[in-house]
Amino acid sequence: MVLDPEDVLTRAAAWAKAGDGVALATVIATWGSSPRPAGSHLAIAADGRFIGSVSGGCVEGSVIEQGIEAIADGEPRLLTFGVSDEAAWSVGLACGGTVKIYVERIEV
């Protein structure tokens, strides 16, 4: 069964209710051939657990890092990842493209 973005929100709420720090990353906009559409989610727990996907690749690592920081300082963040076609493969944006991601803490 494919995990849809909605399962990510349910899990994020469950983590938050269990007392864990949680951040939610949401794809706001994409240009070019980013693999995940606007509205895609990645939920991050303070201990580094995560569920969902915002790019289908290595951008996740950076987003998780920013999520953990957002849990610590409570500040929302707007991240932009853009890569040239040549560099695309190495960071996991399959065919190049730009993705804008909003990261926010779940406030209990």
Binding site: A13, Y102, I106, E107
Partner: peptide, 24 residues
């Protein structure tokens, strides 16, 4: 996002009601 708002969103979804989350 406040957990209370997230829970309201999840409740609307569970009841099959369309809802939009608007973030500034």
């Amino acid at each position: 996002m406040r957990l209370s708002l997230l829970e309201k969103l999840l409740a609307a979804r569970a009841e099959g009601r369309p809802v939009a989350l608007v973030t500034d």
